[in-house]
Simulated scan of single mutants.
Amino acid sequence: MRLGVVSDIHGNLAALEAVADALASAGVDAIVNLGDCVSGPLLPAETARWLMHVGWPTIAGNHERQLLALRDRGVGESASDRFAAARLDADAWHWIARLPPVLQLREGPLLCHGTPDSDLAPLAHAIEQARMVADTPARIATRLPDIDAPVIACGHTHLPVAMRLEDGRLVVNPGSVGLQAFRETRGTPYVVEAGSPHARYAVLTRDAHGWRADLQHVAYDFESMAHLAERHGAPDWAHALRNGLAPA
């Protein structure tokens, strides 16, 4: 069994298509999507249509929840959500509203965006000295006290990591398909930087010895997406898309 895992596409259709091609070449049996699909100053409507067409098992991230709050109650501070919400059609809204926050596959892996209990809390990472960094297996285990799954796949932090816990469970974050750096200024400030513009994903393989994870990245036409971000008034996104680094 080989399972492709993607997360945090954020409307970057060029990166998504490159990842999908790479996973097809790898011969995976299925692909799952861990949320934050369309929010961002790129191609939200086009990305939603693409994902609806392929029909991958998909869960909601915090941005899907925030989009629905923006639509239903006018509540939301995110410019990325406002950009996407203004461009989504009825079919996209219906699709987003039906996405579950957590999903356990019949093959065993549990899919969540942040932790199983929160789409905003990082599972495999922690903030140290204003940067998002990989956490320790012991601290990760405290966030999964009642989870009986051989693999827990998470996203949200945009940074890839694969960590084997002491009890044998595997925690995997594939990193972000669509945005490799950002600077968070609300609440506790921190910076996320993958260090290059490549689109990230993971391949989970189950064999006679159990599950293992391979963290992968692929090049794509990030310059076209950076130009698009600039045209849509988001120079910080353009910088991150080109460099994998957050703007100063």
Rank of each mutant, 00 (worst) to 15 (best):
R169F: 06
L170N: 02
V171L: 05
V172A: 01
V172G: 02
P174H: 01
P174L: 00
G175L: 06
S176I: 01
V177A: 05
V177K: 02
V177S: 02
V177H: 02
L179N: 08
L179P: 03
F182W: 12
F182Q: 00
R183V: 05
R183G: 03
E184G: 10
E184W: 14
E184Q: 15
P189D: 06
P189N: 08
Y190Q: 09
Y190A: 08
V191Q: 05
V191R: 09
V191L: 11
V191T: 13
V192P: 00
V192T: 04
A194N: 08
A194W: 09
A194F: 12
G195C: 06
G195Y: 02
S196H: 15
S196M: 14
A199T: 04
Y201L: 06
V203R: 06
L204A: 05
T205I: 12
R206P: 04
D207Y: 13
H209L: 14
H209Y: 11
H209R: 15
R212N: 08
D214T: 13
L215W: 02
L215F: 02
L215D: 00
Q216F: 01
Q216N: 11
H217C: 05
V218E: 00
A219T: 10
Y220N: 09
Y220H: 14
D221F: 06
D221Y: 03
F222S: 11
E223V: 14
M225N: 12
M225D: 14
A226V: 09
H227Q: 13
L228R: 13
A229Q: 07
A229V: 08
R231N: 12
R231Q: 14
H232S: 04
H232C: 03
H232M: 04
H232V: 02
G233V: 10
G233D: 15
A234F: 06
D236W: 13
